Simulated assay, not measured.
Amino acid sequence: MEKKFRIRKNMEFKNIYKLGKNYWNRNLILYVKKNDLNRTRVGYTITKKIGNAVVRNRLRRKMKEIYRLNFHKIKEGYDLIFIAKRNIKDIPYKELEGSMLHIMSIAKLLKKR
């Protein structure tokens, strides 16, 4: 199993917000910044407006699982931050997965088949 690389430090998040390009759809905002590494790092932001800690953590776990299952489809060398929009707490798993894949395809992050 491949190792997952996460963005954790506040300064890294701020740097990506400032210098990265953003894409959005109904459910998510995605910030993308090219990094000088041969791996893709990912971070998740879910604000308190979406719900309490239980709701936010459940949503974060779903997003991490979708990323893990689709990791092989994503190009290397990018920093990604997924930001959940308010209406995301009510959508089913499959719709969230479709939304994440859709926003990555808009950003041209998916590998050619």
Rank of each mutant, 00 (worst) to 15 (best):
1 M>A: 13
5 F>M: 09
6 R>L: 14
7 I>E: 00
8 R>P: 01
8 R>E: 12
9 K>R: 14
10 N>F: 10
11 M>C: 12
13 F>A: 00
13 F>I: 02
14 K>R: 13
14 K>V: 09
15 N>L: 13
15 N>T: 11
15 N>E: 12
16 I>W: 02
18 K>E: 13
18 K>Y: 09
19 L>Q: 13
19 L>A: 11
19 L>R: 14
20 G>P: 06
20 G>Q: 03
21 K>L: 11
21 K>V: 12
23 Y>C: 07
24 W>G: 14
24 W>E: 15
25 N>L: 08
27 N>G: 08
29 I>W: 03
30 L>K: 03
32 V>K: 06
33 K>E: 11
35 N>Y: 06
35 N>C: 04
36 D>P: 01
36 D>Q: 13
36 D>S: 14
38 N>D: 15
39 R>M: 11
39 R>K: 15
40 T>D: 00
40 T>F: 03
41 R>F: 09
44 Y>P: 02
45 T>L: 13
45 T>Y: 07
47 T>K: 01
48 K>S: 13
49 K>H: 04
51 G>T: 00
51 G>N: 05
52 N>W: 05
52 N>L: 07
55 V>E: 12
56 R>P: 07
57 N>A: 09
59 L>R: 00
59 L>A: 04
60 R>V: 07
61 R>F: 08
63 M>F: 05
64 K>I: 07
64 K>M: 06
64 K>R: 15
66 I>N: 00
66 I>D: 00
66 I>L: 03
67 Y>W: 12
68 R>K: 10
69 L>G: 01
71 F>Q: 15
74 I>T: 04
78 Y>L: 04
79 D>E: 05
79 D>H: 01
80 L>N: 02
80 L>Y: 00
81 I>A: 00
85 K>L: 05
86 R>W: 07
87 N>G: 09
91 I>S: 05
92 P>T: 04
94 K>C: 10
94 K>N: 15
94 K>S: 14
95 E>C: 05
95 E>M: 12
97 E>A: 08
97 E>C: 06
97 E>Q: 14
102 H>V: 00
102 H>C: 09
104 M>L: 15
104 M>K: 02
106 I>N: 04
106 I>E: 10
107 A>G: 03
107 A>W: 03
107 A>T: 07
110 L>T: 04
